[in-house]
Simulated assay, not measured.
Amino acid sequence: MTPQLTDKYMVTIAERLTSAYARIAEAAQNAQRNSNDITLLAVSKTKPVSDIMAAYEQGQRQFGESYVQEAVDKIAQLATFSDIVWHFIGPIQSNKSALVANHFDWVQSVDRLKIAKRLNAQRPQEMPALNILIQVNISAEDAKSGCAAEEIDQLAQFISQCSQLKLRGLMAIPAKSDDANTQIQYFEQLQTCFDKLQTQYPHIDTLSMGMSNDVEAAITAGSTMVRIGTDIFGTRT
């Protein structure tokens, strides 16, 4: 059964989506970039299916989730909407890797060989290769997921040889800062890593960085995908 929409969801999320796209367009213009080169990933974790449907009705197709079982339940409920592109953006536990491999189109949070190996082995042969972003701990925070910059090459080499994985680029969640210059510095470090990786793998095309609080800095530094949740769906409960 198709989830029912309410006027409240339609109006509120429609307005927020419009604002988010306008913000991306303005940031791109200020950075002398084409906004069409920047994808908006709507981060829908902890939000109900009705919110996702409200965004879908406004043309949004790319959604990001961080909690495996919650996401799998949503994907099942929305299985008839085959044009939705599902991104997993959270940490991956080994005992949940099969669910991720079987249900998602993208995984943005691969940060170690063990997980890459499991995803490749568990991705069904009849499904398209799983699009992979390597998550980099660009601000070197002890409590944050992501590989070190010097570990990117080894991980990229392995992923590029996997038949069921497709290397697409890099992702990072830098340390929080309200200072735009500090934000840009972190993002530029990731951009440098991406540029270097692209010399070895010219097909990679995705640099996922920037969230609700630092979209402008990320786009200035070259982001091709921004992950926005709060500004579209409101504060998480």
Score class of each variant (00 low, 15 high):
Gln4Arg: 09
Leu5Lys: 12
Ile13Leu: 14
Ile13His: 13
Thr18Phe: 09
Thr18Met: 04
Tyr21Phe: 14
Ala22Arg: 14
Arg23Gln: 11
Glu26Cys: 11
Asn30Lys: 15
Gln32Cys: 12
Gln32Thr: 13
Arg33Met: 10
Arg33Tyr: 13
Asn36Met: 10
Asp37Trp: 00
Ile38Asp: 07
Thr39Gly: 02
Leu41Ile: 06
Ala42Phe: 06
Ala42Cys: 11
Ala42Thr: 05
Ala42Ile: 01
Ser44Lys: 01
Ser44Phe: 00
Thr46Tyr: 15
Val49Arg: 02
Ser50Arg: 10
Asp51Asn: 12
Glu57Val: 12
Gly64Gln: 01
Gly64Met: 02
Glu65Arg: 09
Ser66Leu: 05
Tyr67Val: 01
Val68Ser: 03
Val68Asn: 04
Ala71Ser: 15
Val72Tyr: 14
Ile75Gln: 01
Ala76Gln: 11
Ala76Arg: 10
Ala76Phe: 08
Thr80Val: 12
Phe81Ser: 00
Ser82Val: 13
Ile84Asn: 11
Phe88Leu: 00
Phe88Arg: 01
Ile89Val: 13
Ile89Leu: 09
Pro91Lys: 09
Ile92Gly: 04
Gln93Gly: 10
Gln93Ser: 09
Ser94Ile: 03
Ser94Trp: 05
Ser94Cys: 08
Ser94Gly: 10
Asn95Gln: 07
Asn95Met: 04
Lys96Arg: 15
Ser97Val: 04
Ala98Asn: 13
Val100Glu: 02
Ala101Arg: 11
Asn102Met: 01
Phe104Ala: 05
Phe104Gln: 02
Asp105Gln: 11
Asp105Glu: 09
Val107Leu: 04
Ser109Gly: 08
Val110Ser: 00
Val110Lys: 01
Val110Asp: 00
Val110Cys: 02
Asp111Trp: 03
Arg112Val: 08
Asn120Ile: 00
Ala121Asn: 15
Pro124Ile: 08
Pro124Lys: 07
Met127Tyr: 12
Leu133Trp: 00
Ile134Phe: 04
Ile138Thr: 12
Ser139Asn: 11
Ser139Leu: 06
Ala143Ser: 15
Ser145Tyr: 06
Gly146Gln: 05
Glu151Arg: 00
Leu155Gln: 08
Gln157Ser: 11
Phe158Trp: 10
Ile159Thr: 02
Ser160Ala: 15
Leu165Ala: 09
Lys166Pro: 01
Lys166Gln: 08
Lys166Thr: 02
Gly169Glu: 03
Leu170Thr: 04
Met171His: 06
Ala172Arg: 05
Ala172Cys: 14
Ala175Phe: 08
Ala175Ser: 13
Ser177Ala: 10
Ser177Val: 09
Asp178Ala: 14
Asn181Phe: 15
Ile184Met: 07
Ile184Ser: 07
Gln185Pro: 07
Gln185Asp: 11
Gln185Leu: 06
Leu190Ser: 08
Leu190Glu: 02
Gln191Phe: 10
Thr192Ala: 05
Lys196Asn: 15
Gln198Val: 08
Gln198His: 15
Tyr201His: 04
Pro202Phe: 10
Pro202Met: 08
Ile204Tyr: 01
Leu207Asn: 03
Leu207Gly: 01
Ser208Leu: 07
Ser208Thr: 11
Met209Gly: 07
Gly210Gln: 03
Gly210Ile: 05
Gly210Val: 03
Gly210Tyr: 06
Asn213Asp: 09
Asp214Glu: 03
Val215Ser: 05
Ala217Val: 07
Ala217Cys: 12
Ala218Val: 12
Gly222Ile: 02
Ser223Arg: 08
Arg227Gly: 01
Gly229Arg: 00
Thr235Ile: 12
